[in-house]
């Protein structure tokens, strides 16, 4: 039969796609809230050639273009504000001791959400090729409370020379670490270890990673509006009303449709 040939053709065309994503902490920690703020420190970024407001604007675009676009994720990152922080965020190492493994510097703990700051510490940026560093430095069990992103603000930094689009993707990569993701081994993913100037969107690894850590939970959970507005009961009432409406309509005498 003709359709057998069609199926054979279809089966020949089937391919297996591949994915891989990693975490940056051993417990797979994630933010508990669906909505997480991304703030910028008020400490100056003297070598980056941009103001705090511009940095915040780039961060806002980074979350909207990349992480907020995943339909299977409940996480919504929001552009926060410029917040007042200690000058240590500009000068101190992000870890106490070595970077790997990293014991977070207790002076730079972020109480909640994600904080971006410019930093000049030589221990953080041993090479000019290192554009930024991120450590989720406030973790309780598998709950992520806060994460710190430090941008290399040394005179020889390579961040300043990047295009606007690439700066956005670099920030998005660091925000990926801040929400708990590690690197991906493939260059089509944002979480690849190198910045690529043709980056436009998330790759499969990124989407799977954020979906794993922050799965959407529709219809009854996951979307903050349901939980926050206590509309779970509203949904159940809607469910009951729908069935009541259906039952009521059915109780009318309709002529039974003819079936051929």
């Amino acid at each position: 039969m003709d359709y057998k040939k069609q199926v054979a053709l279809l089966l020949m065309l089937l391919s297996t796609q591949v994915w891989s994503f990693t975490f940056n902490n051993s417990v797979g920690a994630s933010f508990e809230n669906d909505e997480v703020r991304v703030d910028v420190s008020n400490q100056t970024c003297s070598q980056l050639g941009i103001t705090q407001s511009e940095l915040l604007s780039l961060a806002g675009e980074a979350v909207n273009i990349y992480w907020n676009s995943v339909h299977t994720s409940r996480l919504e990152l929001t552009k926060g504000s410029i917040v007042s922080t200690s000058s240590l965020f500009r000068t101190d190492p992000i870890c106490s001791g070595s970077l790997n493994p990293c014991i977070p510097n207790p002076d730079l703990i972020v109480p909640s959400g994600i904080l971006i700051a410019c930093n000049t510490n030589a221990a953080n940026f041993a090479s000019t090729a290192v554009l930024a560093l991120t450590v989720p430095n406030n973790i309780s069990g598998d709950k992520l409370n806060g994460a710190l992103i430090l941008i290399n603000d040394n005179a020889s930094n390579q961040f300043a020379g990047k295009s606007r689009e690439e700066k956005i993707s670099i920030l998005a990569h660091e925000i990926g670490h801040a929400i708990g993701l590690g690197h991906s081994p493939v260059d089509d993913s944002l979480m690849f270890h190198l910045s690529i100037d043709t980056r436009q969107a998330l790759g499969w690894d990124d989407i799977d990673g954020v979906t794993y850590l922050y799965p959407s939970e529709q219809p009854l959970g996951g979307c903050g509006s349901i939980e926050n507005q206590n509309s779970k009961s509203g949904f159940l009432i809607g469910l009951l009303l729908t069935f009541f409406l259906g039952s009521s309509i059915r109780s009318f005498k309709f002529q039974r449709p003819r079936i051929a």
């Binding site: 994503f21 990693t22 975490f23 940056n24 902490n25 051993s26 797979g28 339909h71 299977t72 994720s73 970077l99 790997n100 041993a126 090479s127 090729a129 290192v130 560093l133 590690g182 690197h183 270890h193 979906t211 794993y212 850590l213 799965p215 959407s216 939970e217 529709q218 219809p219 996951g222």
Partner: peptide
């Protein structure tokens, strides 16, 4: 960065609903 690091893989499963 300039070296290598060991990144943990997920241990378990996660299901998203839409």
């Amino acid at each position: 960065g300039t070296g290598t690091a060991s990144f943990p893989l997920p241990d378990g499963s996660s299901t998203s609903r839409n």
